[in-house]
Design a protein around this nucleic acid. Structure first.
Lengths: 342, 342
DNA sequence: TTGTAAGCGTTATCAG
DNA sequence: CTGATAACGCTTACAA
């Protein structure tokens, strides 16, 4: 009873016909439903027929019927940020292993709300939000979707985050140990939680050490290399020069570092620069960048796993959302504080 | 006649009921079909009803019925490669503007064949293949899908490519002008067209200038920073040192540059290094990297536009696939050949 | 254990 | 111009 699929793609109907069973039975077998009790012989016939015909299920039809798309949305500020690319890589890997596709949603293409609307229209099973300021979104924007926030702890939504406060503290500790007292911070103006916490950890630790940071030493700029460069320029133009700068991420730190070199400072003799993230690039600038290592891929992978658990309502407890640890990586851009300050 | 959608998402049925028209009529209006002739009054009633109910079309249902997913697959070797991230950004932007979603397919998650199978199962409307060696795929792997190849000219599939041969020639010209005669090339072993052409352009131009490159000066390694570093190490360990190296991409060039510095060479006095791509990072290493600028975003954007044209069978001629131009960007990593060679 | 019947939310093809 | 009626390919009760 070989139904030669004349041009048409082979559907589950064809498989059922060839196996001599009803179409729903074929479905039961092919979607290997957990509580589907089908006779071994029947099952085998169906499987054979499917193999012989080269049957490939149609995910769209499956989605419509089951109201699940087997797809995850990943909303990020910018894929070109290496840290973000790492997060995505970790998430995609986990998603792919679980049979889920990943819809890439970059804020440079659409804003977060629009992305969410689009994803909803596609019956997306879940969404990962990475550093897009979810807390600033109106509640209804996220209503009705499974969401996991990355690096942005929240009361309403589950998430996976890194120990951002600790990142700031480690940076502060490192610079304090090197004898610095004139410190500055460069961070983005945006409302991204992790950046705020890195700043807080840094400032609080300094305060604990009896060092207050003057407001002129707290600069805001876009979280890019250009932003870091500009912020450093302003920093050097205003008042007495700091001897150490902590930046909210490595991109800004690299900008700051380059700017310092450009105006003739020598690093780390005149100025120490510490970044955060430990992107690959941090090792390729000169001097190599001292930074706080943050497990980006792991972050993405865990977030994806958590999201899948949410979606599949697995009974097993969702992994306690401890903060992922960060650690100091000492390289050439930081050193002892200069003896005398201008 | 307000049908309060009790919990259920509002469907086109609800809209039709509220507007007092049949459901297919509502569909005609809401999908603003080109050749659908609906009475203005009716149309308005439908639109009002949709607005009042907050109707959002279900893309999955639409896909099943229309056999189009309104989604594009983008298969890339690695999102973490900054050049690739740029290509993706360009493509996603175009896709989003046209109402298409982008499924990210990274080779680190699955291999190309598997990605293609998955995409087909999702009734993907088209696929962008970036530097994944499409020519090595069996024909049936790409059968039945709209495909646009990026940077890999082919007889069978349309594509957008950059002038890779010219990139190699420009690098050669630049180094020849600087008086170099002892040249080397570092490139990947993989079968990626653009890389091969860059190499060919380089080698051919040298040959035209009467300079033959000895095989020991042609090193193969993975197209990463680590690969470039390793290749440079071997290069320096074997025979007389070259005075100039052209690398198939910036990542390798940066690795090569770092390795040269590590063993105490001074750049560009002892050695000139030229990369290719002009990724942002090229400006952040020290010395800054001389490289061949390749319009990555434009490449992705054009490829996406071409793919959309293919999909929508628009009668307008597909943009003649001229090679996108590349240009030399001279920075600090290249300089005059040293007077005497070891 | 298996088959029947009824959707899932659209689009598409027709009559009226 | 509009409205039945039938797909699209699959899942999920519910019967047999």
């Amino acid at each position: 009873m070989a139904l030669p699929p004349s041009g048409r793609r082979v559907t589950i109907h064809d498989v059922a016909a060839r196996a001599g069973v009803s179409q729903p039975t074929a479905s039961l077998v092919l979607s290997n439903h957990p509580r589907a009790r089908v006779a071994p012989a029947t099952r085998q016939r169906v499987l054979d027929a499917a193999a012989e015909l080269g049957y490939r299920p149609n995910v769209v039809a499956k989605s419509l019927a089951s109201r699940r798309s087997f797809a995850l949305g990943v909303i990020v500020p910018d894929v070109r940020n290496p840290f973000v690319a790492d997060v995505i890589t970790g998430a995609e890997r986990v998603a792919a292993d679980a049979g889920y596709a990943v819809l890439l949603c970059d804020q440079s293409a659409r804003d977060v709300r629009q992305h969410l609307d689009v994803l909803r229209a596609r019956q997306i099973d879940g969404v990962l939000l990475d550093a897009v300021g979810a807390s600033t979104l109106p509640d209804e924007a996220l209503a009705g979707v499974n969401v996991v926030l990355i690096d942005e702890p929240s009361e309403r939504w589950p998430g996976i985050a890194t120990d951002a406060v600790m990142a700031g503290r480690l940076a502060a500790d490192h610079l304090l140990e090197l004898g610095h007292t004139e410190m500055a911070f460069i961070g983005p103006a945006s409302d991204v939680h992790a950046f705020r916490m890195r700043e807080r950890g840094f400032v609080v630790r300094l305060r604990e050490a009896g060092i207050a940071m003057r407001s002129a030493r707290l600069r805001r700029a876009p979280a890019t290399v250009a932003g870091g460069r500009d912020a450093m320029r302003l920093l050097l133009a205003t008042g007495p020069r700091p001897t150490a700068v902590f930046c909210a991420n490595d991109l800004m730190a690299i900008g700051a570092l380059k700017q310092a070199l450009t105006v003739g400072l020598s690093l780390p003799a005149d100025l120490s620069v510490v970044g955060c993230d430990d992107i690959e690039l941090a090792r390729y600038v000169t001097p190599e960048l001292t930074t706080i290592s943050v497990p980006a891929r792991e972050l993405g992978a865990r977030a994806a796993r958590l999201l899948l658990q949410l979606i599949e309502q697995s009974t097993q407890r969702v992994s306690a959302s401890r903060l992922l640890p960060v650690r100091l990586v000492t390289r050439g851009s930081s050193g002892r504080a200069p003896a005398a300050v201008a």
